[in-house]
Simulated assay, not measured.
Amino acid sequence: MPSDSDDSVSDRGKVLTEEELDLTRHDNVDEIDDGRYVVSTGGSTSDDAAEARDEEREIAESASTDTDDDEPSITETDVNAWLEDHLREVDAQYGFHATAKFDDGVSRHQVVSNDVVTSFESLMIWYAQHVGRGTPVEEVLGILLAESSVSVRYPVRTLTGLLKRYDLDREDSIDDLIEAVSDEQAVALSED
């Protein structure tokens, strides 16, 4: 029994040579386009087949010319509509897609979440990382809030957490709080 590598007949049939695979050498085959052929079922191709081949070739050439010259243009409106549709399809309560220019670069950030705080925190951190130029995110966010004209109302539990952090209670003064915070900032600056 011959092996599969022989040029003879095997269990899978005759192994074709490279010449046998070359369709263009057959009289009843005409190439109409790169990789596209018209094969006549009997003898050489007829005049009708030649005309069909020429029409196919003209259509293919016209289509490739149209594609090159008339590239589709995507407008800002198209992009915005796509983003809106994309976010509507997301299975989450909150989401955003932000694109921003920072100095000479452009960065994009997308978050979808069912947690409103996680979504907002992600946006703030992303923004602070890009504008901070190496400054810690906490400092950048503090500076941005302090410098903005937006008044922020802090929940009472935030103040309670701050007092506990510095081991302060009702009997300590505001001066004690300011001193504790100032001492921490001085330590942080000296560590840098």
Rank of each mutant, 00 (worst) to 15 (best):
Q93K: 13
L87G: 04
S73W: 06
F102S: 08
R108E: 15
D103V: 00
F102Y: 14
T99E: 11
F102R: 08
D85L: 05
Q93E: 13
W82S: 12
D91Y: 02
A60T: 08
A81Q: 13
R88V: 02
E61K: 13
E71I: 06
A60E: 03
T67G: 03
E84H: 09
T67Y: 12
S64E: 14
W82F: 15
Q93P: 00
K101A: 12
A60F: 07
P72Q: 10
D85M: 06
K101R: 15
D78F: 01
V79Q: 04
I74W: 05
T77N: 10
L87Q: 03
D68V: 09
V90Q: 15
T67V: 06
D103K: 05
A98Q: 09
H86E: 15
E89W: 03
W82Y: 15
K101Y: 05
V90Y: 06
L87S: 05
R88I: 02
S107K: 08
T75A: 03
S62R: 12
T77D: 12
V79N: 02
D69E: 15
D69P: 00
F96Q: 01
L87T: 02
D70H: 12
T75C: 04
T99A: 11
D104W: 01
D66R: 14
D68Q: 09
L87Y: 02
T77E: 14
D68A: 14
R88G: 04
E76K: 05
N80G: 12
E89G: 08
D85K: 10
R108C: 06
E61T: 10
T99Y: 05
D104I: 01
S62L: 13
E71Q: 13
D69F: 12
V90D: 07
E84C: 01
D91H: 05
S73C: 03
E61C: 01
T65M: 11
A98N: 07
A92Y: 04
S64T: 14
S73R: 15
E76D: 13
F96A: 05
E84G: 07
G95R: 03
K101I: 07
G105I: 00
P72V: 10
E61M: 11
Q93V: 01
Q93A: 11
D91L: 03
F96V: 04
A60L: 11
D68M: 06
D69W: 09
I74T: 15
D70E: 10
A60K: 10
A81I: 03
Y94F: 14
A98R: 10
